[in-house]
Amino acid sequence: MVRSLHFPSKTPSVSRFLFYSFFKTLVGQQVTVELKNDLAITGVLISVDQFLNIKLDEIKVVDEARYPHMIPVKNCFIRGSVVRYVQLPAQAVDTALLQDAARREAQQPTTAQQGNVRVK
């Protein structure tokens, strides 16, 4: 597997791609997803999409005593918008590459920079 972040050169909203590409490089890693309702789930990252929806397998709820109904659940789909944090294995993250990607993305003009954001 090629572990690199690459972006299509002429995307109008590059913003969508940085973390999507980043999470794709973490597929197969064990992560802990903490939701906005405080439920935290550890599992293997199976897939991610552009909304940062996440599929996890071999899951284990961090505080099982508080959420006993989750014990039989073995895999799950998490809507991106309910995520607060994702704890990542540090050794799986190339921080220099990430920073470069973030800087490169910052150079793209955004709709906000253009000033007039019109809604039809």
Partner: peptide, 25 residues
């Protein structure tokens, strides 16, 4: 449904600077 104003030319990507011109800088 969010469209940039048609009259606004897309500015060329600004070179990386230390100036704070927009909040994300």
């Amino acid at each position: 449904d969010v469209v940039p104003a048609p009259t606004t030319a897309v500015p060329a990507p600004a070179p990386e600077t230390n100036a704070v011109e927009e909040p994300l800088d």
